[in-house]
Design a protein around this nucleic acid. Structure first.
Lengths: 163, 163
DNA sequence: GGGGATAGGTCATTTTTGTTGACTATTTAC
DNA sequence: GTAAATAGTCAACAAAAATGACCTATCCCC
């Protein structure tokens, strides 16, 4: 076995100093964001695995509930995945009675997506622990801070042309 | 093909009303958080795929840089993944010269993990666009809001006993 | 000093989530 | 009537991570 295949063929010195306030990098927020999201999605994950569904199903159920009547194309654009990836999970959700398709009233090529009653209940059950968690994280926060957090999260998004 | 295999055998009524302020669920923040995180990780993803690495490598490089000398067990606890999942990416990072292992000085079963110079550079390159994004999201925010965001993100974490 | 517990590594298999490419059917628009 | 758009489907493939089963080295304790 050769010793090294990486960028430096010589013996790399291990560095022992923690990478803290190096330069102008905000490691603190980066890390907080990682942990926050990791635990944020863990609640619905636990619920989903009982039904045999995964995160992909969660996202579909969520957005169809938020935007009833959205088309398959809309959903693809929101999730930024391929048609074939969506097809599998969407089919399972339709077969299980959580989502219904209706041919578009004007353009009958379209399939407009709606939650069923069960679909809405599932979306609520998944969102409930997340909302509790958000509530808890906001404990004692002023209205100004709450608005600031929303602005911050919104500001983290890409700012593209077609949005 | 049977019509329905789901929770309700009858014809499920599609629901057309958007699920907005239903009950006490904060759908707005849930959605903001989803989009914010999706775009937050997209910057390093783009850098990583040039090296053939993925998100798992990113997380390992990040935490080893932040906590030089952490053990494999520490890392498993932080990332909440299995030993076998970690093994693959860790091996690649070691073989590529980004991370080095040193037997623990007291307990020689342990493998303490350190970044090499390349490892530190990689971690910085990955964190840089994320930090720019955070900076941009904070534009015009007061010090109070900045602290509020940190408190919010910290509050989103699980509060377990062994932490 | 022998035995069990701990830290780590490895091998094989599977699941989840997503990809690419190719092809079909229906419907709309010009 | 033909081309373009919307959707569905089949097949092969790939990455990330999980599971289960072992193996090695070392430490701790009696």
């Amino acid at each position: 076995m050769s010793r090294q295949t990486g960028p430096k063929a010589g013996k790399p010195e291990p560095l022992a100093t923690p990478m803290e306030d190096t330069e102008t990098i905000d490691f603190e927020i980066i890390e907080l964001f990682f942990f926050a999201y990791r635990d944020f999605v863990s609640d619905p994950d636990a619920i989903l695995e009982k039904s045999g569904f995964g995160r992909a199903h969660h996202r579909v159920v969520h957005f169809v509930n938020r935007n009833p009547g959205m088309t398959v194309a809309d959903l693809l654009d929101t999730l930024k995945i391929t048609k074939q990836s969506l097809a599998r999970v969407l089919k399972q959700l339709i077969d299980s009675g959580y989502i219904r398709q209706v041919a578009g009233p004007e353009d009958r090529r379209q399939r407009k997506l709606y939650p069923t009653k069960s679909g809405r209940e599932l979306a609520l059950a998944l969102a409930e622990p997340q909302s509790r968690r958000i509530e808890r994280a906001f404990e004692g926060a002023s209205a100004q801070v709450r608005e600031g957090v929303k602005a911050f999260l919104g500001g983290m998004r890409d700012r593209k042309k077609a949005d």
